[in-house]
Design a protein around this nucleic acid. Structure first.
Lengths: 344, 344
DNA sequence: TCCTCGGTTGACAACGCTGTCCACGAACCT
DNA sequence: AGGTTCGTGGACAGCGTTGTCAACCGAGGA
């Protein structure tokens, strides 16, 4: 094994172009192009000379120039989500990458951090790069800025949340049905005082899950326990405070539905070691939920299924599908592990 | 809120170019360029006409063409890692994205799945796209293919594992020291039969951690317990089988060091509910480790610190740093939570 | 009056690449 | 011998943008 040094020495050197290769090989630039693209009609000995020159110069075809000239696809898709660092979204990312790979495309990602301005900035930047398509987990509710892009032929698919004011393909999960099912499940174990701990109602999924919670309460004949609904907390301290309030109330909650994986984890941490724990059922599955004690029951849905469905939809558009925009709602399933099966 | 439809109708329409804008606004293309780039010297009324035309046509500057012409940075960096879906790497990704954002650059990611051919393919594809720099979690040990790229001025930083045969900036974590510390920690609780469950020794980090394990054993005066070393298992079944073998041995292990987060989780699942559990100390921290019972002690290191350090190194090169390649080793720390503090 | 000057605008080339079209020589046919 | 084909190679334009340079116009100075 030889150790090759390749650092800074020649840093400012311009990259070799086809012209350089052509000059070195003593052929025309077009012949180089032919060799690089495996086009027929180049004499083997000529090709060999060209390949040697390519090797010697470390030439690598400039894809930007190629795509510009050919007016063809850039071979990229843009993915705007809330936070690649969140395991849920990284699962989505992986699925998108997987599908894209099979279609010979690369994925550019960006995290919006729930900031609509940032989402917009990322999406438009991607459009400037002429991505072939855009996958967006909306942070805001206004997407009119995408209309020119869509009209210009960039297909857009919204993930996890719908767009505010444009009609486009959308993949969602059954937030309402899942949360309602959670309430009914808890009620079937005798719970009458069920609380809901959700993220900010500005977030579509949080709001939908609250809707599902109300629906579940209604179907279980529990009325509308507004005092048991807390929306907004999404860090450790605020979740802890909310739980304390629910516990210390005159008529405390005996069960809690948590609105997403982060809130569930914060709730678990807040409740750890406390003597009497309410029954708990969380929206979103998460790793190790089965190993906690008690194991945590959840409304599970599949990040990769979400990513794959969205990517499939996008690639169908790229393949020329011009049918009306679709809205796909993926099913969720209740995974009973223990924490939600405690009698009131 | 108006609902805008923007689907398929005009799909095959070519995107508007500066030429189109110029024609519509009745100015030269150069004037459009001036407006788009906020260059001085355009009469306000002219600029207004141009902006109106841009708006009407939904024009968006083509960055590929711009970069081609200016010969400047493409504003992208490539990140090749094992699997974006793995929480550890998604943390790395997020950190890289964060740093890149502050430097006005976008991140293109790709998962190699530990396949050297795939790593190479991704890295070279990124080079063809003329990324400004490359961050690579090596899957293989041969990186000579990168030499032409590096010579041509693309800085490369290796993450988490060193490159096989090129000299370049590298950011690692203290695998050896951390694992040795783990062994000494367990030994301090009286353990003499300590096992190591690691991933395939082909993987640098797995091999280094094994080295650290041996070093720790030596320093603790435990000799070289080769029968207690199992390398390779990385799925649920093989980890379970390995643990069973260790337990059923004539002189069973009383403590286990697991070589990475996935193996730790598999081990936890395999040991769940079993009567006598060995002391456990895992390499890599993971979410909820503190909430398990017993809470899991780990050798922790920080994915974002790794990503940030690597990105910082890369951007330093892009800023013109031509000092010799650096090797940064990030410290790890033992987080004692309970599972590793069981007396033998 | 002529000239200069700042403010505005445009013509043109070029970035690296590929599609089109044409040139050249050798071999083949009639 | 002249014409036709095939195999090989090159000249050139243009993808959408920007840097360079020059032209134009009205105002101000000599």
């Amino acid at each position: 094994m030889t150790t090759l040094s390749a650092n800074g020495t020649a840093r400012k050197l311009r990259r070799a172009t086809m012209n350089d290769v052509a000059r070195l090989a003593g052929v025309s630039i077009k012949t180089v192009s032919r060799v690089v693209n495996d086009e027929a009609g180049v004499h083997p000995s000529t090709a060999e000379r060209v390949l040697a020159a390519i090797d010697q110069l470390g030439f690598r075809r400039n894809l930007s120039a190629r795509n510009l000239r050919r007016g063809s696809s850039t071979g990229t898709v843009g993915l705007v989500l809330e936070d690649v660092g969140n395991p849920f979204y990284s699962g989505v990312t992986r699925a998108v990458e997987e599908v894209s790979r099979s279609r010979g495309r690369q994925v550019i990602t960006g995290s919006s951090d729930e900031d609509p301005a940032r989402e917009r900035e990322l999406a438009l930047e991607f459009c400037s790069r002429r991505v072939d398509g855009l996958l967006i987990v909306p942070a805001g509710v206004q997407h009119g800025y995408l209309v020119p892009e869509m009209r210009a032929g960039t297909p857009v698919v919204f993930l996890d949340r719908p767009a505010g004011d444009v009609v486009a393909d959308t993949v969602l999960v059954d937030n309402v049905g899942g949360t309602a099912e959670a309430v009914l499940h808890l009620a079937s174990f005798g719970h009458r005082r069920i609380a809901f701990l959700g993220d900010s109602p500005d977030i579509f999924t949080a709001d939908e899950r609250l809707r599902g919670f109300r629906e579940g309460c209604a179907r279980a004949g529990l009325g509308f326990p507004e005092s048991l609904v807390v929306m907004g907390p999404h860090d450790q301290d605020s979740v802890r405070a909310a739980l304390r309030r629910l516990r210390d109330a005159a008529d405390p909650a005996t069960a809690v539905v948590t609105g997403n994986n982060r809130i569930t984890v914060h709730a678990l941490r807040a409740l750890a070691g406390s003597a009497s724990r309410p029954a708990l059922l969380g929206f979103d599955d998460f790793e190790l939920a089965d190993l906690l004690s008690p194991p945590v029951s959840v409304i599970a849905h599949d990040a990769s299924a979400l990513g794959k469905a969205a990517a499939d939809l996008l690639y169908a558009r790229l393949d020329g599908d011009t049918s009306p925009p679709r809205r796909v709602v993926l099913p969720v399933r209740l995974v009973a592990r223990g924490s939600g099966e405690v009698r009131a």
